[in-house]
Design a protein around this nucleic acid. Sequence first.
DNA 1: AAAAATCTGTTGCAATTGCAACACGGGAGG
DNA 2: CCTCCCGTGTTGCAATTGCAACAGATTTTT
Lengths: 222, 222
Amino acid sequence: MLPEDNILFKGIDQSDCRRMISCFNADIKTFRTGQKIMDYSDNPDKLGVVLSGTAVMVRYDINGVRSIMESLDEQSIFGVYFTFTASQRSGIEIVAETECNVMFVKRSEITKRCEKACQCHSKVVENLLQLMSEKAISLNERIEVLSQRTIEEKLISCLSIIEEKTPNGKAPQIPFSTTALSDYLCVNRSALQREITRLKNNGVLTISKRKFKLMRNRDSDN
Amino acid sequence: MLPEDNILFKGIDQSDCRRMISCFNADIKTFRTGQKIMDYSDNPDKLGVVLSGTAVMVRYDINGVRSIMESLDEQSIFGVYFTFTASQRSGIEIVAETECNVMFVKRSEITKRCEKACQCHSKVVENLLQLMSEKAISLNERIEVLSQRTIEEKLISCLSIIEEKTPNGKAPQIPFSTTALSDYLCVNRSALQREITRLKNNGVLTISKRKFKLMRNRDSDN
DNA sequence: AAAAATCTGTTGCAATTGCAACACGGGAGG
DNA sequence: CCTCCCGTGTTGCAATTGCAACAGATTTTT
């Protein structure tokens, strides 16, 4: 992908983008599979956009156990959420999963008013804010789902959210395999399967492939 | 609290703040207990800071069930996370719990470059980004905790996070009552109590009042 | 086309958790 | 001082969930 097409620069025309890339002193680098792209003990002012390839954000807890916090595909942005406060906390790293092309920008370059006062500067800030708010929304949705006490409630809450976001007329669709869904819901796969089957038998839910439909308003399901 | 002292204006001196309040066309209003402060179907560009009093962010789900998403005390900011994408989604409202003083600013006023090009303008943007990233961090922590499968794991994960954030030398402290903690962990209170007692008996945990200490590295706890 | 890998669907059994009920203690307020 | 309210701590029992194991279906690789 061309650096000019990245989401931070959305809504800005190409020539302005090129001007900004130099105005921002943006740095474009290539990483090979397995290479460390960024280490949070390093530079807290750096922000990255994945232009091509796939990376992961991993975290090592106090016992050294590695867990994947987030998968970063093309157009993913990182270094926005964890730099300020979390830097003291245990090691978070960005690691390349395939060959990656990454653009780095200093956050301070974005927030400061440049002398040339390029109009598009404020568009970038808006884009950044938009990205962060979308992120916060998806985190909140996840919390809403995980807050539910039973698998049935988790599942229905998750499906409701998907349903609400589906445009009218389109059939709501689960974006995962059942196995992946069980990871998202943080429950055992076969227990999830059991619940799905039960809800289908009770007529609360219909699923074919990944398309589904929720029947609501029927109180008391046994 | 004076409008000049709010977190959006942190690090900016008073006279500049006053100038900005007019530059931003900021609006300061008072609400009485129970009054609706903001409705997300309204104006998606508005952002609010609670200057005094307490409010709550509530959400009505598809069945009309009301749940509290967030408690907003003095210095809380709202309208930042949910405006862009979530506005279509089911009704989110901000409601005054006590008498409240609220400052409203348009987000577009913050992101745009004003002609007067006040230096402090970019400081406000930085503050806003900082607030959002802190928010994202705390949401992520919550998810990390809720992702754990058992009450024991949830508890230990939660306490570890608190421990990591506690400055060296200070005793880590749970910021809730046990009852409130069970709400945060989304588990049954008495089941949580049972686990706490068990961990204390096994020597994994010591608690007195709200101060606690975790003993790690002892593999195999039964 | 065969083999391997991955996902779906099911079930018995054991472990965890929720629920309800009760006892105790401290703080607020009459 | 007494009462009410709220948080803590405990326990038996029922419901939910995790785990393991297996079979069939589907997809990917060789």
